[in-house]
């Protein structure tokens, strides 16, 4: 697991009120009990942690170009945003 994954899991576990070891890469955020408001809060925490801007519009999640369905997808998206300098 990458450093990104560890840090993303920490944020998601906090949001889902779970222990870090109970959050797996393959879990979907929905399975972890994170609803639409929880997702917006998680994205805010991720943006603060990594100093990035995640292009996410909560209005219609299906319409977003970014995949945030699973913990791994979120970690990959964060890695991509950090390494490609999206601010």
């Amino acid at each position: 697991m990458s450093n990104y994954t560890d840090r993303v899991i920490k944020i998601i576990a906090h949001q889902a009120v779970l222990e870090i070891e109970d959050v797996k890469e393959t879990d979907t955020l929905e399975e972890l009990g994170i609803d639409s408001l929880g997702l917006v809060e998680s994205i805010f925490a991720i943006e603060e942690e990594f100093d990035i801007t995640v292009p996410y519009n909560a209005n219609d999640p299906a319409e977003n170009d970014i995949d945030l369905t699973t913990v791994k997808a979120v970690a990959d998206a964060v890695k991509n945003l950090v390494e490609n300098g999206a601010k």
């Binding site: 917006v40 994205i43 996410y56 519009n57 909560a58 209005n59 219609d60 319409e63």
Partner: peptide
Amino acid sequence: EGLRVMSKDACRPFSANRNGM
């Protein structure tokens, strides 16, 4: 802005391509 429900370009109620308020 924080709530992420705002549109950056237009308010298009009921239109399939709407993207927020």
